[in-house]
């Protein structure tokens, strides 16, 4: 027996109420739960509510929890516990981190042998040499802006595109460059405290750091756009 649209919507709201806030995590859970509920109703002759309660438990969620909830000692039903879903999301998050790290490495290897990127990289190095020659003090700031490019894209998309909001994939891929950006930022802090008293500060350090981190930042942008396009299509398909 196929579930009607309203019943599917009920399951989607049940997932949201149980803390599954990312839409790209929810789609897989929703399909599994709907399929399992349909089969249970058909094969075991149980009601929609009984079937859903059974499937809720099969994900490792309890249907009874003890404690004090609104002056009651016990909480029962579909919203008593969501530990199974929490565990599901945590494990997915871990594997997505791995997926995008592997993808970044693969993309970096591909980019380092691409003539177009090598030309771009050479231009960036030349640009930083020129900037350093004429405006040595601003090298650090320009480097910071260049390494922040992935954040500009993800911030822009989060404002204009709903598919990027509450998406676990986009959140993870958007944060990928954070480590390298933080390293650069840390470099600035160390530089400022170490060379505080110096008159001629070695600003070339910033040019070197930016040039070294540039390929990683550029790879992050490529991987971000790959994930963005894939999830945008998925989101549009969901809304149709």
């Amino acid at each position: 027996m196929k579930l009607i649209k309203e019943e599917i919507e009920f399951i989607e709201h049940y997932l949201i109420k149980n803390g599954v806030k990312y839409w790209d995590v929810r789609i897989e859970l929703l399909d599994h739960i709907v399929s399992a509920v349909e089969d249970k109703i058909e094969q075991e002759g149980v009601s929609f509510n009984e079937a859903l309660l059974d499937v809720h438990q099969s994900f490792g969620n309890r249907t009874k929890t003890f404690g004090i909830y609104n002056d009651k000692l016990m909480k029962t039903g579909l919203y008593a516990d969501n530990n199974g879903f929490k565990k599901f999301t945590r494990k997915k998050q871990k594997e997505l981190g791995r997926k995008y790290r592997n993808l970044t490495l693969k993309e970096l290897k591909k980019m380092l042998v691409s003539p177009a990127f090598l030309l771009e990289y050479t231009s960036i190095i030349l640009l930083f040499v020129i900037v350093f020659q004429y405006w040595p003090k601003t090298t650090g700031f320009i480097g910071l802006v260049v390494l922040m490019l992935p954040y500009f894209f993800s911030a822009f998309h989060s404002l204009k595109d709903k598919s990027t909001r509450k998406s676990l994939n986009i959140m993870i891929v958007g944060n990928m460059g954070f480590l390298f950006f933080s390293l650069y930022n840390l470099g600035i802090q160390i530089f400022n405290s170490y060379y505080e008293a110096e008159i001629h500060k070695p600003f070339i350090i910033f040019a070197i750091m930016t040039c070294l981190l540039y390929p990683i930042m550029r790879t992050n942008i490529n991987v971000y756009f790959l994930a963005y396009k894939e999830h945008k299509n998925m989101y549009e398909l969901m809304l149709t």
């Binding site: 897989e28 490792g60 199974g84 565990k87 599901f88 997915k92 594997e95 997505l96 791995r98 592997n102």
Partner: peptide, 16 residues
């Protein structure tokens, strides 16, 4: 179980 299947599928996907 669902708790074993999906992490395994996601792991295999992450490994390419």
């Amino acid at each position: 179980t669902e708790g074993a299947l999906y992490p395994a599928l996601h792991k295999l996907e992450a490994e390419g």
